[in-house]
Computed example of a mutant assay.
Amino acid sequence: MSAMTVKLRKTIKAAGLVSVFAIAAGCSPMDRYHGFIPPAEELAAVNVGSTTKDEVIGLFGPPVSDRALQNNTIYYASSQFEVFGPFAPEEVDRQVLAIDFDAGDRVRNISRYTLEDGRVVVLDRRVTEDGINDITFLSQLLGSFGRIDAGQFLGDEP
């Protein structure tokens, strides 16, 4: 074997080894965190019956959803997702902190829900109605041809 062949083999082996490490690093699980839950030490500052809604928002910041304020409940939520390579993220932990207020905007109850509780808490629903019922894009396009006025099309103004 020539010196060039030996050098080429070493280079291929090194490139293969680097590729294996890069693939292994790319497929290792990664954790992603979203949201915020106040720590237990800070939550201890909230007194049931005396702390107001404004004080809670001042301590922990704005809630997850503005709609929650209308129901006299503030929600703070956090989630942990595990991402493994090209697969979809999997939620491994979720915590929802619900702070209920009475009619006088004083704390009535503090509840904590986790992923294991299985309770569905709807924080916000954002759905925009399009006002179009069972009409496809092509039907809309073809339906507009009969409404074109030749004067408007050619730029003639009466």
Rank of each mutant, 00 (worst) to 15 (best):
S2C: 11
S2R: 09
T5D: 14
T5A: 13
V6E: 11
V6G: 09
V6L: 14
K7E: 10
L8K: 15
R9G: 06
R9Q: 15
R9E: 11
R9T: 12
K10C: 12
T11W: 14
T11I: 15
T11Q: 14
T11Y: 12
I12K: 07
I12C: 07
I12D: 06
A15E: 13
A15K: 13
G16R: 11
G16C: 14
L17K: 10
V18A: 15
S19G: 15
F21G: 12
A22V: 08
A22T: 13
A24M: 15
A25M: 14
G26P: 08
G26Q: 09
C27W: 14
M30G: 09
D31Q: 15
D31A: 13
D31V: 14
R32T: 08
R32H: 11
Y33E: 09
Y33Q: 11
H34Y: 15
G35V: 03
F36E: 03
I37W: 01
P38E: 02
P38C: 04
A40G: 04
E42Q: 09
E42F: 02
L43Q: 02
L43R: 07
A44M: 03
A45L: 12
V46C: 01
N47C: 09
V48T: 08
V48N: 02
T52L: 03
K53Q: 04
K53P: 01
D54R: 04
V56L: 06
G61P: 03
G61H: 08
P63F: 00
P63S: 08
V64S: 07
V64D: 08
S65M: 02
D66K: 01
A68W: 01
A68D: 07
L69P: 00
S78T: 02
S79R: 09
Q80V: 02
E82P: 04
E82A: 00
V83N: 05
P86H: 06
P86N: 11
F87P: 07
A88Y: 11
P89A: 03
E90C: 05
E90H: 06
D93A: 14
R94Q: 13
R94K: 13
Q95E: 15
L97N: 11
A98F: 03
I99C: 02
D100H: 07
F101P: 10
F101M: 04
A103W: 12
G104Y: 10
G104K: 12
D105H: 00
D105T: 06
D105V: 07
R108P: 00
N109L: 11
R112Q: 10
Y113S: 04
T114D: 05
T114L: 06
L115Q: 03
E116I: 05
D117G: 00
G118H: 04
G118V: 01
G118R: 05
G118W: 05
R119V: 13
R119P: 01
V121T: 07
V122N: 07
L123I: 01
R125A: 06
R126A: 12
R126C: 09
V127D: 09
V127Q: 04
D130S: 11
D130L: 13
G131M: 05
G131R: 03
I132A: 08
D134H: 10
D134L: 05
D134M: 12
I135H: 11
T136V: 11
F137S: 08
Q140L: 15
S144L: 08
G146D: 05
D149Q: 12
Q152C: 06
F153N: 00
G155T: 09
